[in-house]
Design a protein around this nucleic acid. Sequence first.
DNA 1: ACCACTAATGTGAACGTACACAAACAACGG
DNA 2: CCGTTGTTTGTGTACGTTCACATTAGTGGT
Lengths: 338, 338
Amino acid sequence: MEPEKVRAPNIRDVARLAGVSYQTVSRVLNEHPSIRDSTKQRVLDVIREIGYRPNQAARALVTSRSRTIGVLTSQTAHYGPTTSVTAIEHAARDAGYRITVTSIASNEYPSIRAALDQMRTQAVEAIVIIAPQVRVLEAIHELEITVPYVTLQNADLVSEHSMSVDQVAGGRMATQHLIDLGHSEIMHLSGPQDWIEAEARMQGYLEAINDADLRTRAPILGDWSAHFGYYAGLELLKFRDFTALFASNDQMALGFIHACWDSGLSVPGDISVVGFDDIPEAAHFYPPLTTVRQNFTEIGRRAVSLLLAELQGGALDHAQIVPELVVRRSTAALPTGS
Amino acid sequence: MEPEKVRAPNIRDVARLAGVSYQTVSRVLNEHPSIRDSTKQRVLDVIREIGYRPNQAARALVTSRSRTIGVLTSQTAHYGPTTSVTAIEHAARDAGYRITVTSIASNEYPSIRAALDQMRTQAVEAIVIIAPQVRVLEAIHELEITVPYVTLQNADLVSEHSMSVDQVAGGRMATQHLIDLGHSEIMHLSGPQDWIEAEARMQGYLEAINDADLRTRAPILGDWSAHFGYYAGLELLKFRDFTALFASNDQMALGFIHACWDSGLSVPGDISVVGFDDIPEAAHFYPPLTTVRQNFTEIGRRAVSLLLAELQGGALDHAQIVPELVVRRSTAALPTGS
DNA sequence: ACCACTAATGTGAACGTACACAAACAACGG
DNA sequence: CCGTTGTTTGTGTACGTTCACATTAGTGGT
């Protein structure tokens, strides 16, 4: 409030008070090896005393390193992405990086372009992409983004810059679970077409269906929302020509179950439903949802460590993260003779 | 990848190519009024041609303005906060600011301190606090944070730096709705003790109960999670000495409803339930949840405009944001003679 | 006690921009 | 045609830090 003209203490202030040169202070700050313990202590004392904080802008200017990781996310606020952002933030902070979040306003090209442009302006050193839409990757190529980047929740569709989360396996195990229960008419409610993870889960579904020699049904392309699941469900259930459904995320599964109740059908009595993600609420749906769990925290953490390895030259950890099937009450064996 | 030693073009490169002085370029960048159109155009052309981007670090250094807004959030990834972050990001970007998100690892004091310290190090110009816990505010005072800040989702408990979201009114209308339906034994499942918004909603509950001369029951202090709602519900329902429950958020309401079903009770047949927030899934719970809607996007946007007003000296918009009751199927009139 | 070598500290740049001030240029009235 | 005014452009400097290099202090061997 008050127009305090007292500027923040700088490195020279510290130097003067500690009776050393500013360069010595700089060395203390950067943990240079050859500095006498007594000197170091004296400097640190002064720093603490006057509450000195290095000016990040000056540091960034001279080193041309922003120590910032950009996080590109979509505007929709789902549990998974958000959890990952938090994990990313912590991992980044531990490594001395900060993160700056930019969300794309829509999945139109100009919006993606604007977001990436913002990243570039902020001189981020690396980018984590949580909105892994094909268009985003296209934009990255087109804008010639040169910093390391990594896309979350992705399988092998884009091999180099992706976390090794085996979404395909996740889709497989969800579908296989239904097959094992005796279902043969299994629908799939997928995510938007240009989402890589939706694609991967769908692929897992198709593989499982194929391997079991079942009839392949055209997946429905949704928008991840419970609303979509509900309205799609109302339409689909007019026919009742399937006994199980694998939804590409828990929200759509919830909406679909809602549609089942509204249509007078019981889950899992008449229809079995499997979701994806295992959001914390899934265990409390009615019925509690069988779903495929992803460890979003782990995913976020690994994304950062991958980027840091690339930035600082460490070993890349390319171990696959495999999701895990969580069986609850929304799936049941197909009654024999149905 | 390639160790390109070509440094990015700077303002002098632009100046040279445009045949003007660097200061002229600077003026173009900062939209100084007195600059000839032809000159301006020439400079802009060069900028576009060589892909020049102003160096933010240098700019921040000389202006001592980081153009960054810090967002302090809690580690839990709920719909509301996340939605607000997105809105904040957009509003900030529109105003030429960027945001940097920091989440507190736990609600312990050192963690809060560390997060605020990080903000200070990054020289944020303002802070949006989405984890409005009392401790955070204490920490803000103690650390002598001097930049403008605003807490989201807050009523009048902390008057000056808070968004005017009337959470108390929200709690009131939820409770009043149950009273209007004829319920007289109404429980409240609140949020954690040190959360300001939990406090406010609880206060609304208590006011409504008082005004109706009903028996005040000690609210249960939860942790916002569906899990808590479930287990608390199992305990509470052993007694069945209430016919309605107001949960302080939708997740806990969901968990409680789950407990109702598990206890053989019907919602709303035996027990009416009201939630808070209106997360997108709430409409698809079983039964669809009556809840109090908050416009999280609006809240985030307003938070930024409040901060910008303080930073740039504009008019403060102190109009209250009043939440809105959304009646669905989880509440019903108390059967007469019960 | 001296030399060679390493450890510890200091000095002069440079990073890329904006601000304060100065200078050139045009326009205009008397 | 000259002084006055206003518009447009240019020059020096500072922001706070790190890097490259220079210098001094310290250590051990002979």
